[in-house]
Design a protein around this nucleic acid. Structure first.
Lengths: 396, 396
DNA sequence: AGGCCCTACGTAATCGATTACACGGCGGCC
DNA sequence: GGCCGCCGTGTAATCGATTACGTAGGGCCT
């Protein structure tokens, strides 16, 4: 591959001139054309490695994601990638698979690669490497999950409003024995969701006793299923369950189906994370939608602030309740074909310009360009009021 | 951050010696300890950028994936990442989002970054940049999708056996009017799947007329739904539909549900790509499982061959039919909780330890560590023979 | 006309590693 | 005892860019 020296020779100038023409740092006139011609003829492309060495900027960001196969994180990663790209950065990605050692491994590799900044949705709460990252001075932004003792801004969703709405929703529907499936003990995210939910329920005089708080053994299908099973074996089983992660929700649903129980008749079910296919299940699931793409964008934004030397603050973006049919009474609706909060992207650095139809209340639920030639599924196929006419099985 | 010179000074040796100690190139004795001590005390880590400039090897692979939010590609990306990592490579990832220009953009960026090798699951068939890649001499391996005119090995799944089995399955169940939803016209993958399916059906005397071949306008939910709608409006609608992509299948299911049609009673449905949650739908979907993780591993493998100067051949790994309940008669089963073909890896290039039992025939369907204390869902919740006892809605 | 400044460009240092080559010391061999 | 070769190490070139600094030439002012 041609290098800058080849270009210089062909254009009959020095390498400095070539560099200047290409970077536009110094105004260059007449030779400019000769240089550009040489570049074209040789198909020259600057070597980013050399440039990075000299400038101490690689133009790459690192992302260590807790579990890439978890749809929530997939979307998050996608949003991050999108935002990074639109700002001219490449993304080096690492999947920790919820294993803290692997996470540390990755962080080390990324540091060695001298990425310009690091985004981490941490698996586990006590990471030695994270401490090293802040010590090294590499800009760091935490994503979705806080890590106690790490001094870095964290971008995540605030579930308070959604959980408040959810508590009201459940209370209105007469559910008196709610339960919650949370992440393994000690996870900040899990603890927080539990406390918020409990407080929100308390406002309606509904208790959330410890026996109806199930800590899953993992953030997977298996753990969620196990907890649901335990709930169902209780002398007085819950009449509503909130699963605080989509994979755990999947397991919970399987357990319900395995026992021949029906949603929402026998059990109301609400899931955290509104992954695309939740809108396509039967019944469509009521979910707490995190503004995933906005989180990704905001995180990259915050990271750039830090890279450019400015301070960046922690960002809390509101999650919201997307009421579908898995608790009984349908209330508001989303268009079929995508979960809520899937926002079309706009300018590279945009925050959240006029996009959401203010919290879950779009009039007819049909977005332009979707449902081509068809009425919205959820309207046309689902029971008009309460009760379940076709008596379908619980299903996913 | 400390550099090699700092280490050299502290250890009282030259930089060359430090480098040799660290790379083990030359046997170094007594000074060795001093150097290692200095490295430890300074927390020195070699700068990969500088090393890459000097050695012309970055230790990074590029992956340009057609659509990261498509679960099939998510899993593929995850497998690639896993394999790359275990071989000491980092992964720079780019999501083309099925947009050829964006794909070219990414490829250019990756080339500029001097990645050691490139993996591409191409969106679109005529990529100018791909041609440049081979011209540049950067090792290239195509993933899942061939690109005519590009001289590079391609790693993908072979659907012949699966489609043959599927044709037999459908014939045995008395389905005489099959249909297929394929990718937009001209996609090699779509064309191939169509031809194989048609040939397989012909062996049973079942025709696949053009009116029951629906080319989707995109590889998304919307396109699949539209095609299913057209099928249903036919004077003689099909009695079985194969959707050749999981997102299109989702749309097809929505359309069925919207019309109040039931699977498998009113329509048999088979999907290409066995994404995790297909095993959790009601009824569980019969699917064609591509050996996703193996594909990822094989691709990285092949890429390494090329990087190391050896030739690499195209790899075809067999997909297989996972018979569940969406065509009627249940036949074989998979354990709940994971799609088929999620194979446990071997050796250092391993994916996840102790995962699935051998290919889809475990006696009771319960893998150790899963379904704790419960029988397998699909056995316990589904109708024993044919017909649908609870008369549930089609559902996802 | 001379001094100054600005513009356009070249020379060379620099980033942090790897590595070819040189060199001193020492043991073995004849 | 002298020569050869090897071992351990240092010196310096190198990868391909960016950029501080120097310089020549031209325009403008006094």
């Amino acid at each position: 591959m041609a290098n800058i020296k080849d270009v210089a020779e062909r254009a009959g100038v020095s390498v400095a001139t070539v560099s200047r023409v290409l970077n536009g740092n110094s105004p260059v006139a007449e030779t400019r054309e000769r240089v550009l011609a040489a570049v074209r003829e040789l198909g020259y492309r600057p070597n980013n490695v050399a440039r990075a060495l000299r400038t101490a900027r690689t133009g790459a960001l690192g992302l260590v994601i807790s579990d890439l196969t978890n749809p929530f994180f997939t979307e998050l990663a996608d949003a991050v990638e999108d935002a990074a790209r639109s700002l001219g950065y490449s993304l080096v990605i690492g999947n920790a698979g919820e294993r803290p050692e692997q996470q540390d491994d990755y962080i080390r590799t990324l540091l060695d690669r001298r990425i310009d900044g690091l985004l981490v949705s941490s698996a586990g709460t006590g990471s030695a490497m994270l401490r090293e990252v802040v010590a090294s001075g590499t800009p760091l932004v935490l994503l979705d999950r806080t890590v106690p003792g790490i001094d870095a801004p964290c971008v995540r969703a605030d579930g308070r409003a959604a959980l408040t709405d959810l508590a009201a929703h459940l209370a209105a529907l007469g559910r008196r024995r709610p339960a919650i499936i949370v992440a393994p003990a000690g996870t900040p995210t899990g603890d927080e969701r539990l406390e918020l939910f409990r407080a929100a329920l308390a406002a309606h005089g509904i208790p959330l006793p410890d026996e109806r708080v199930g800590a899953s053994l993992d953030l997977q299908h298996t753990g969620g299923r196990r907890v649901m099973s335990d709930f169902l074996d209780l002398p007085e089983p819950p009449d509503a369950v909130l699963a605080t992660d989509n994979l755990m929700a999947l397991g919970a649903m399987d357990e319900l189906r395995a026992r021949g129980l029906r949603v929402p008749d026998d059990m109301a079910l609400v899931v955290y994370d509104d992954v695309p296919w939740f809108a396509h299940t039967d019944p469509p699931l009521t979910a707490i939608a995190q503004p995933t793409r906005d989180l990704g964008r905001a995180a990259v934004q915050a990271l750039l602030e830090r890279i450019e030397g400015r301070p960046a603050a922690t960002v809390l973006l509101p999650a919201r309740l997307v009421t579908r049919h898995s608790c009984g009474e349908p209330v508001t609706e989303q268009p079929v074909g995508g979960p809520a909060n899937r926002q079309s992207a706009d300018g590279p650095a945009s925050g959240r310009p006029g996009d959401e139809p203010a919290a879950g209340r779009s009039a007819d639920g049909s977005a332009p360009g979707r449902n081509v030639g068809r009425p919205a599924t959820e309207q046309s196929c689902d029971e008009p009021t309460t009760g379940r006419p076709r008596g379908g099985s619980p299903t996913v």
